[in-house]
Each structure stands twice: as C-alpha cells, then as structure tokens.
Design a protein around this nucleic acid. Structure first.
Lengths: 198, 198
DNA sequence: ACCTGAACACCGTTCAAGT
DNA sequence: ACCTGAACACCGTTCAAGT
C-alpha cells in the first residue's frame, strides 16, 4: 500500500537500516547481500553507497544498533538487581538471552574486523566491570586477582557459553535447561559467598 | 620448478587441501575463494567439484584437519601433565594457543552450519571431559555440579577467551600477558585445592 | 574417471547521467 | 544532493565437451 516512491527516497538511510535488520536476522551475516537489501527497499543497487561507504559499513551500523540494545539489557539487569552479587548474576542471564534472541546481531557485534577489532561491546563491558568491582567489595567475588582480571574471566565464560549455545554447541550435549539455570551453573565457581536467593 | 601438469592432475584433492590451508590462513573464512584456490593449484574453476560437493565441503574438510591437530594438542597436554589437575590446566593453555596460532581454522571449526552445528570439536571435548572427571575425583575441581556441567563451564571460559583474544578483544584492555598467565587467571576460580606448581 | 571451456545467476562497487 | 542505469571484475556452480 506504499505510495509510488518519488525519485528521492527521502529517508533511505533509515529504510536500509530497518530492512537490514530483518535481512540480517533472516540470512545471517555471511549471506547478507547489499543487492538484496536494495531490492527490498525498492532502490537501485548503487543507491546505498550514497549513505554507507560499503557493505561492511552497513553491517557496522547494524552492530552499533546491537550495542545499544545489548547495553540497555545489561543496565536493566543491574537496575533490577537486589545487590552487587545479584547484578553480576543477572547480567549473566541477560548476556545469554541476548545472544540467543539476536544471534546474527550478536555475531557481528563481536566479529573481528580490520580497524574495528571485536571488543567487549563497550560501554557494555564498562557496566559489567563496575558491577564486578562492587561485587568484589561486597565479598561476593574473590579478590585474589584485580577486578579487570575477574571481570575478564566471567565475561569470557559468558561469551563462550553464548557463542557455543547460539551455535548449537550446548544442545549437542542434550542440555536444554533454561537460560537461568545455565547461567547459575556457569557462574557457580566465581562466588565466594552465597548470593541472595542463590 | 613444477613439471608441466598433465591433463589429469592425479592428486587434486590433496593439492586443494594443502593450498586451501594456506589460502584460509591468509584470507580468513569469509574471503576464502574457491576460484582463487583453483587458480593457485593451476586447475579450472570447475575441477574442484569433482572432489568436493561445494565450497562449504572444502571448508568442512579443512575444519576436520583442524580437529585432528586440535585433538592432538589436547592429548599432548594431558600426556605432559603431572596429575589430573595439571592436565586440565595444561589443556587450557593448549586451547588458547591453538586459537591464537590457527585463528582461521579455529573459526571454521566452531562455526555454525546447517547440518553441521558447531560442536565441541569431538572427540576433543571427550578428552577434556575425562580430564575433568579425574580432576573432580582428585578434589581439584568442585563436585557441587556433575562433571559435564563443570566441564562445560570451563570449556566455555576457554572458548570465550580464545574467541575474544584471537579477535583482539583482550588486547583492547591493554593486556598482553603470555598465554600461560592468561590461562591461570581464567581458570583460577575453578580450583578448590592448589594444583602442583600452582 | 577426471578435467576444461563456456555459460549462468549473483555479487560488490564505480561512475556518468538523470531529476 | 540523491538516485538510476549500465558497466566492471569477481564469485559459486553447472554442464556439455574434451582427454
């Protein structure tokens, strides 16, 4: 029911991102086609180049959208937490949930890329890091190593689980436990005193 | 100095795998081109299809080679270990080292794929699992959760660290510590009694 | 049985030309 | 300023034809 498109699309950049989000979710990062995207938006294959440098630039823009959603999810987890230990635990669940619910976006967020190395999705890691610092201070997490080291270990555990799980690695072992239970088992070894409700 | 190739290559399958290993290491999985591979081996672009169903089949074959090397590395780690706790610790170092030394192969080994879900690189996970069982029995690892759960958590920690590190995530934090030190910090929380030499 | 040559559909990217 | 049309180099894959 869209009206006949005028020669100038008007909000092509927006339209490319909206349709791009869908295309990425449908096809995954590897099969994400710029030509297909242009076709869906009803524009020539050259048109997107007026708004993005190349294919990678669009994917990066979609990754940026992912960082925003991801970061919001982590902040919600912290906001809902009863105390610093609970905050770390809830971030764990949120991390896994994000990876399962947005597998393609999750993949591009942490992919390696020339001039844009896979990062921790800052400022998300910063949010997590602060939660770890507080949890250490409250005695929930060991302080044998500095906070950045502990944060890195827990982050790696969550990231590894997210990658393997979203890729089907865990289901291979016949484990279909809910994310909450998985998160509890994954982080179990890090607690040095019981969490509230743990 | 290669002699003029006869019409029948003779060992094309082998040659494709050898050159494929190189091409994969040079370009990474995404830019791995079947045409380029055929060109390097000095054969028409259609020739590889006599030996592999498609591009994915060659990459899968290269992943299989990766599994073999990976598995050998884990077994060497176990063989060199002083006891079950040390075996788990050494597997950790071997895991990280493999990811750093063979980043492209590591990526395709654990990639998601239709009909070939990313797995733990069995039988490598089995080797690791057995080491965890023994380490639990010897009291090095907690037995609050069953061995498969503990093994999964440690595996996730190593996998996450390997992915983030080989993608440049860790260097972002300015941490250039050697792999051995990184492995020690990553696995620190899992030990419930000191390892030999820990 | 194994490989070539040529073709097809698709892709990312560029650029002169249109509005 | 923004978009089209047509082109280029490249890709994966297929298939009749060659040895």
């Amino acid at each position: 029911m869209a009206a006949q498109q005028p020669y100038h699309h008007g909000s092509l950049r927006e339209a490319l991102l909206v349709a791009g989000r869908e295309l990425l979710a449908e096809r995954g990062p590897d099969a994400f086609s710029l030509s297909e995207l242009a076709r869906r938006v009803g524009v020539s294959t050259a048109a997107p180049y007026r708004h993005f440098a190349d294919r990678d630039a669009i994917i990066d823009a979609l990754a940026d959208e992912g960082y925003v959603i991801f970061h919001a999810a982590l902040r919600e987890a912290v906001a809902a937490a009863a105390d610093p230990g609970d905050a770390v635990a809830r971030i764990g669940v949120a991390y896994l949930r994000f990876a399962v619910e947005h597998p393609a976006v999750f993949q591009i967020m942490f992919r390696d890329r020339e001039g844009r190395p896979a990062e921790y999705g800052p400022p998300s890691f910063q949010t997590f890091f602060e939660a770890v610092v507080l949890a250490q201070q409250e005695g929930y997490l060991a302080d044998r190593y500095p906070a950045h080291s502990v944060a890195r270990s827990i982050w790696a555990t969550l990231h590894g689980a997210a990658v393997l799980d979203s890729a089907g690695g865990f289901s291979k072992l016949g484990i279909g436990a809910p994310l909450e239970q998985l998160a509890v088992e994954l982080l179990d070894s890090y607690w040095v005193r019981p969490r509230p409700g743990g």
